[in-house]
Computed example of a mutant assay.
Amino acid sequence: MTFGERLRQLMAERGISQRRLAKLVPCNDGYLSKLARNLQVPSAEMAAQLDEALDAGGQLAALRTPPAVGRRVTVHGKYADEVAVTASGIGHHGPVAPELVGYFRQQLPGHYRADMWLGPHMLIPTVNAQTRLIQQLLRTADTPVRRGLLEMGVAYAALLGWLHQDAADLDQSEHWRTAALDMAHRHGDPELVGYALANKAMHAVDLRDGAAVIDYAHAALADEGRLSPKVRVLALVYLAHGYGYSGDRDAVDRVLDRAESLVDRVDDAHPWGNACRRTPRYMDIQRATAYGRAGAHADAVRLWDEILVDQPADYRRDTGVFRARQAAALAAAPDPEPEKVVEIAEGAADACTQTGSERLRGELAALPTHASAWAHSPHGRELVEIIASVT
């Protein structure tokens, strides 16, 4: 475990926000944010002060020097641990046991759950190693086993693409989304191809490329009659976000109404792509987000107020993202509420520090642009300070 990871854990365990901890030590908010993200090494004195403020019994001081193993250092576009494994020549030899497909299938739901708690940075090395192992096993597996591994390869590569997207590494995200699509085509199942294309649409959402989102979503739905309700829901949701970027509110509603009619028919036959079943009020969340993108801020605010009443406490990262979107809609609404925006942004900033989610950081960084009408007010200046503490 790194210094930053333990610092975030201790803050969460003690219920201390980043801003409050910065005042206790005392130190600069932005500096503390860098420590929590392992972007800077604290001095011995600072580590001791944080230990004392968090009653950590010397744990942070012991972690002050970043460990050499497991860090996300890149070498020519690859993780250093990947380069080391490749160079070592270690690989699988001999027949591939069919039971390995079941092993990867059983592991997948646990990765989704861990993502909710740990965020992307701690999970990427594990999922990356398993995805590369699947790719390696594909070379020697016989046809029946290879088909099972290809399905798992699509699921793991898509998850890895998502984790990199959440970590704001869009180049790696694109690489793994493309790998997922390639394995889906190798398998030949329209269901897997549709799922992989929907994941490409998800990647285009973060690029804010509305045209690409629409194109990938339409491609995913090209063989809609052969797709499960789950894949159709995912593709329709991203299609709605594409229309949101183009400002077409009517199309957003039309497409999301289609998706909403399918949600109750989604089953868990596949262990992948279950956000539409796992996330409370999934369709309302997608509609509120698409409304914000389409500029329908007042309607987005109304929905976010309803959604965020009962979000689970253990959905820290996702709830933080939703609150940042709620704050953006409030800030840009015809009748903005600056005081409420600041309050929401502060809570979302704490979630950002605890989870290390770059996606949440990006949502927060965009907030001041929505608050331009009152940027020079006291609340506007306080908002800028909050955002600066995590960016």
Rank of each mutant, 00 (worst) to 15 (best):
R186Q: 03
N128W: 04
T289Q: 11
Y238F: 15
A333S: 13
C352G: 00
A327R: 02
H121M: 15
R277P: 10
A36I: 14
L35Y: 08
Y79T: 13
M283L: 15
P109L: 13
Y112Q: 12
Q354A: 06
A141E: 01
V384H: 10
V231T: 04
L367A: 09
A212L: 07
L239I: 11
Q172L: 04
A365M: 09
A300C: 06
E5Y: 12
G102D: 10
A61P: 08
R19C: 00
Q18C: 13
K200Y: 09
L207H: 04
H175M: 05
L39A: 14
D350E: 13
L10K: 10
W162G: 03
A80F: 07
Q326C: 11
V384P: 03
S389K: 03
A371K: 02
P338C: 05
Y195Q: 05
G153E: 14
I124K: 00
V101D: 01
A296E: 13
A332P: 09
A141P: 07
E363G: 01
V69I: 15
L360T: 08
G244T: 12
P336W: 06
I124Y: 08
R359V: 15
V255R: 02
G380S: 02
A84S: 05
A329C: 06
N38C: 08
H370A: 14
D55I: 15
E339K: 11
H76V: 10
S261R: 07
V255W: 03
G380A: 01
D55G: 07
I16G: 00
P190V: 13
P125A: 02
L234K: 03
E346Q: 11
M46D: 03
N199Y: 01
Q354V: 15
E337V: 12
M11T: 04
A198D: 05
D142L: 02
A235W: 01
D182C: 11
A235G: 01
A327E: 07
T2C: 09
K78R: 12
A351S: 15
P229Q: 04
N128S: 07
A349R: 06
R132V: 15
V263D: 01
G15C: 13
A61F: 12
P190N: 05
R277I: 15
A48S: 10
R14E: 06
V390R: 09
A56Y: 00
Y245D: 07
K340Y: 03
P67I: 13
L50C: 08
S261L: 03
L360S: 01
R226F: 02
A259L: 04
L364V: 07
G58I: 11
H370S: 14
Q165T: 14
V96E: 03
A97H: 07
S246R: 13
A22M: 04
T279F: 14
V341G: 09
P280K: 10
